[in-house]
Nucleic acid binder design. Structure first.
Length: 755
DNA sequence: ATAACGATTTCGCGCCTCGCGGAGC
DNA sequence: GCGCGAAATCGTTAT
């Protein structure tokens, strides 16, 4: 087969490797592409970029590019994609791990549309039929979305000639790595693969698996100084020492005094908020008048809710915090304001390091330990180095600084481990049973794998097998999962030992559900039919592995247990005993269920946040998840031949869950710009259905709380009527006034829920 | 002597995050 | 593994 051994360019000296953009023509790259790059003001490539472009990737060879963030991986990918499209046609797929990143890349790649290249983004947030995507040349997708598209056997998949896997090292992430690994296993040999990675311990091994050339470098466009701070001493990697006041916050003040910014990584949300408050107070007086004014404007533009109020308070001081409790709108607002230089200090949980590109002159790592499922552990070197990599803003700073704060740790050890140390090796996460289960199911139900032998044959293509080379373990694992699938009627087997995909299994896989979730749904279905009720259903949703669990506080336990007993008749399971290992989990499921129940009974956001001890972002996420699972439950119920009445009941409940309303508002809430709040206001003002609204005078509607001219305009447009200048309205009952398509608010914004 | 209240010490609790679906007359 | 708030203990003062 392919005999070319992958070659590693490990040590490379930048000197002599420079490459002019013009030289691309030597590789057959189209003039238009070259011109476009030069228009961006780029005339020469960075050394690692040159190295990558020379590696053979432009001739269609696979490449693994392991270089630091912001050293120009994206540009390489862009050139390779464009070149491929210009010479070979087909489609390029760009895989990202985060929705936010998908959007970021979309904005970047859109500039190529001048050359007639069509760019599309598809994530769970965007509706996107396969046909629609077929029209595009570059498709940006999250790994999960692409995996899902593969399972749906989208037509255009066979046109894909290039896969770019951004952040390919996430293949080693516990819960999501397997997805990426399987996508690559599917596409290996069918499309060219370009992997973009952070530096990892075993890049060679990964490249070997991908049959790819390997380019590794630690070259950066901005110089980077690394150091450790311990009690007033800032010890640089070269041994030099700077004196500071004893507290680490002096590093932040110092940066801001120099007219720069600081990014501080901490390990809890609470710390992020606390430190932002503390730092804000010290940084406030260094702001210029116009800055202070702009910040105030920004803060005022934020909607008021318990989480945002905390944010507003620090924002006016030129500080901010960034964590998953924030809504998405708030997060991007902060990111933009930091990029603009308006926010001087940003404190963040480690999420930020793997997310959008947000560089800062100085990066301070306050914590190197974190709480995870297995208790406390050191944050992996890989992750810390990603944080470190955020130091230095390419266009603004000559040099970036990354400083790890030592508290109880010995400074030398931190230095050794995180600054000079090698990042961890990547391990295949098909070893994670949950991931493996779902992938094996997909292979059988969606990818036409017909026998056990064939299954093993495919699995031999994975990184898992490449890495372990242990057929026995692989077969053992596969066997136990096949049994599970057989036992629960996801699949069947005929007399010749051929697999038969059953509808239940097929749908489960297409819905992208964990088979365990599907099993739970299936088992509970008879009880739902017998006694349909929101609480029971919500508890069921909350008990699935696909729904993250809400943490429960010690002090809350008793009251939720009482609640569970009170509601025992509504639940589809018995209440476990205190000694049961699942007791804790059960209570947190009850808590989640109760939250959802409150939500559909129109309890205000602020009250929910307060009562359940969560942030806005959490609320939003829980509801989104429940919404998705509810939909999946309905789909599976259909496959399992549930009664028509049950399906109808579930559908209404799904709508209520989606919008957070009681029954009576379901009609109103379908209108654009009308969410739970405005719908309630309208209803209480006597406008109880669409007809009432249509008949009402605009002035009457404007008198309702929360209904302004803009909203009204939008509603009238929905009916195909211009807002009459508060005079006469067209007869609304004419059917042609109703437009075909219902415009929806963009999912993923806060407005989606508050409308 | 002791209630009352403020200051200081001890105790135990809670801690990080991301993605997945998709219907029209 | 550690910060934080609550609870517990200690300390001071007023009556």
């Amino acid at each position: 087969m392919l005999s070319t051994k992958p070659k590693a360019y490990k040590r490379f000296s930048p000197i002599g490797y420079a490459m002019q953009v013009d030289e691309l023509s030597k590789f057959g790259v189209d003039e238009r592409i070259i011109r476009k790059i030069k228009e961006r003001g780029i005339s020469e490539f960075y050394p690692p970029q040159a190295e990558a472009l020379r590696s053979g990737v432009l001739n269609g060879e696979n490449l693994l590019l392991a270089i630091p963030t912001a050293s120009g991986k994206t540009l390489v990918a862009e050139i390779v994609m464009l070149h491929k499209l210009f010479t070979g046609g087909g489609k390029a797929v760009y895989l990202v791990p985060l929705k936010a990143l998908a959007e970021e890349k979309y904005r970047e790649f859109k500039t190529w549309e001048d050359l007639g290249v069509r760019v599309a983004v598809t994530t769970g947030d965007y509706d996107s039929s396969e046909e629609w995507l077929g029209k595009y040349d570059i498709i940006i997708a999250t790994s999960e979305k692409f995996d899902s598209l593969l399972r749906h056997k989208s037509r255009w998949i066979r046109d894909v000639t290039l896969i770019v896997a951004d952040e390919i090292h996430l293949l080693g992430s516990y819960d999501r790595g397997a997805t990426l690994e399987m996508i690559l296993s599917h596409m290996l040999g069918k499309a060219q693969i370009l992997g973009l990675s952070a530096t990892v311990g075993n890049a060679e091994e990964l490249a070997e698996w991908l049959n790819a050339k390997l380019v590794v470098s630690d070259w950066r466009p901005v110089k980077l100084r690394k150091g450790v701070f311990a009690h007033g001493q800032l010890i640089w990697e070269d041994g030099k020492v700077d004196k500071f006041p004893p507290q680490w916050d002096s590093l932040v003040i110092d940066a801001v005094k120099k007219g720069k910014q600081a990014l501080v990584f901490v390990n809890t949300r609470r710390s992020a908020e606390k430190e932002a408050g503390m730092l804000g107070k010290k940084v406030r007086r260094l702001l210029t008048k116009p800055e202070a004014r702009r910040l105030k404007e920004l803060a005022e533009s934020l909607e008021s809710n318990p989480t945002n109020d905390k944010l507003k308070e620090v924002l006016v001081n030129g500080a901010a915090f960034h964590h998953a409790g924030l809504g998405r709108a708030e997060r991007t607002l902060i990111e933009d304001a930091f990029r603009e230089g308006l926010i001087k200090v940003l404190t963040a949980t480690p999420t930020l390091a793997m997310g959008v590109n947000l560089p800062s002159f100085r990066v301070i790592i306050r914590d190197t330990k974190r709480y995870s499922t297995f208790g406390w552990s050191d944050i992996p070197v890989l992750e810390i180095q990603q944080m470190i990599g955020r130091a230095g803003r390419p266009k603004y700073d000559k040099e970036g600084e990354a400083i790890i704060v030592a508290k109880t740790e010995k400074p030398e050890e931190l230095m050794e481990k995180y600054i000079f140390g090698k990042p961890e090796k990547l391990f295949s996460m098909l070893s994670n049973d949950a991931a493996f289960r779902s992938q094996v199911l997909a292979l059988i139900t969606n990818f036409g794998v017909e026998s056990f032998r064939e299954l093993i044959g495919f699995l031999e293509k994975t990184f898992y097998y490449h890495q372990r080379k242990d057929l026995e373990i692989l077969e053992g694992k596969a066997k136990s999962i096949v049994y599970f699938l057989l036992e629960n009627e996801f699949i069947d087997i005929d007399l010749n030992d051929s697999f038969i995909a059953l509808p239940f299994g097929i749908r489960t896989s297409q819905l992208y559900l964990d088979p365990l979730t599907a099993k739970k749904f299936k088992d509970a279905l008879p009880q739902i039919e017998e006694n349909p009720n929101p609480l029971g259903i919500f508890q069921l949703l909350a008990s699935t592995p696909d729904m993250g669990t809400l943490s429960i506080k010690r002090k809350e336990q008793e009251s939720y247990l009482d609640y569970a007993y009170e509601m025992e008749d509504y639940l589809y399971r018995s209440i476990p005993y205190w000694e049961d290992y699942e007791f804790q989990k059960f209570l947190s499921e009850v808590k989640t269920a109760k939250l959802l129940l409150d939500w559909i009974n129109e309890v205000s956001e602020a009250k929910l946040i307060e009562a359940y001890g969560i942030d806005t972002g959490d609320l939003y996420r829980i509801i989104e998840l429940a919404d998705w699972l509810m939909y999946s439950l309905i789909e599976l119920a259909k496959v399992l031949n549930a009664g028509g009445e049950t399906i109808k009941y579930l559908r209404r409940l799904h709508l209520r869950l989606k919008h957070g309303v009681r029954e009576e508002l379901l009609e109103l809430v379908e209108l654009p710009m009308i969410g739970r709040r405005r719908a309630r206001a309208l209803y209480n003002a006597g406008f109880k259905n669409v007809n009432d609204i249509v008949k009402a005078k605009p002035s009457e509607l404007l008198a309702v709380e929360g209904i302004g001219v803009k909203v009204l305009e939008r509603i009238y447009r929905h009916f195909g009527v211009e807002l009459p200048l508060l005079k006469n309205i067209k007869d609304p009952d004419k059917p042609e006034d109703k437009p075909k398509e219902k415009p929806k608010p963009k999912k993923g914004t806060l407005d989606y829920f508050l409308k």
